[in-house]
Simulated assay, not measured.
Amino acid sequence: MRIQADRDVCIGAGNCVLAAEDVFDQDDDALVEVLQEHPSAEQESEVRNAVAQCPSGALALVEE
Score class of each variant (00 low, 15 high):
Phe24Gln: 02
Phe24Thr: 01
Phe24Ser: 01
Phe24Arg: 00
Phe24Tyr: 11
Asp25Leu: 06
Asp25Gln: 12
Asp25Tyr: 08
Asp25Arg: 06
Gln26Asp: 05
Gln26Arg: 12
Gln26Met: 13
Gln26Val: 14
Gln26Thr: 13
Asp27Gly: 15
Asp27Lys: 07
Asp27Thr: 09
Asp27Cys: 08
Asp27Gln: 07
Asp28Asn: 14
Asp29Arg: 15
Asp29Thr: 14
Asp29Ala: 15
Asp29Trp: 11
Asp29Phe: 14
Asp29Tyr: 11
Ala30Lys: 12
Ala30Asp: 12
Ala30Gly: 10
Ala30Cys: 11
Ala30Gln: 10
Leu31Ile: 13
Leu31His: 12
Val32Trp: 01
Val32His: 04
Val32Ile: 10
Val32Pro: 06
Val32Asn: 02
Glu33Gly: 14
Glu33Leu: 14
Glu33Trp: 12
Val34Cys: 06
Val34Trp: 03
Val34Thr: 12
Leu35Asn: 12
Leu35Phe: 15
Leu35Ser: 12
Gln36Phe: 06
Gln36Thr: 13
Gln36Val: 14
Gln36Glu: 11
Gln36Ser: 15
Glu37Thr: 15
Glu37Ala: 12
Glu37Pro: 15
Glu37Trp: 07
Glu37Leu: 06
His38Pro: 05
His38Trp: 06
His38Val: 09
Pro39Lys: 01
Pro39Thr: 05
Pro39Cys: 01
Pro39Arg: 00
Pro39Phe: 00
Ser40Val: 04
Ser40Tyr: 09
Ser40Lys: 09
Ser40Arg: 14
Ser40Met: 07
Ala41Pro: 10
Glu42Phe: 05
Glu42Leu: 04
Glu42Tyr: 06
Glu42Trp: 05
Gln43Thr: 04
Gln43Ala: 10
Gln43His: 05
Glu44Tyr: 10
Glu44Pro: 03
Glu44Leu: 09
Glu44Ser: 12
Glu44Lys: 04
Glu44His: 11
Ser45Ile: 03
Ser45Met: 07
Ser45Glu: 12
Ser45Phe: 11
Glu46Lys: 03
Glu46Pro: 05
Glu46Asp: 09
Glu46Ala: 10
Glu46His: 02
Val47Cys: 04
Val47Phe: 05
Val47Asp: 03
Val47Tyr: 04
Arg48Asn: 09
Arg48Gly: 02
Arg48Phe: 07
Arg48Glu: 09
Asn49His: 15
Asn49Tyr: 07
Asn49Asp: 10
Asn49Leu: 14
Asn49Trp: 04
Ala50Ser: 10
Val51His: 00
Val51Phe: 02
Ala52Phe: 06
Ala52Leu: 09
Gln53Pro: 01
Gln53Trp: 14
Gln53Phe: 06
Gln53Leu: 15
Gln53Glu: 11
Cys54Val: 03
Cys54Ser: 03
Cys54Glu: 01
Pro55Gly: 01
Pro55Tyr: 03
Pro55Ser: 00
Pro55Cys: 02
Pro55Phe: 02
Pro55Asp: 00
Ser56Pro: 07
Ser56Gly: 12
Ser56Ala: 13
Ser56Gln: 03
Ser56Tyr: 06
Ser56Leu: 04
Gly57Ala: 04
Gly57Thr: 08
Gly57Glu: 04
Gly57Val: 09
Gly57Asn: 13
Ala58Glu: 01
Ala58Cys: 10
Ala58Ser: 12
Ala58Tyr: 02
Ala58Phe: 10
Ala58Leu: 03
Leu59Thr: 02
Leu59Pro: 05
Leu59Trp: 03
Leu59Gln: 01
Ala60Pro: 10
Ala60Thr: 08
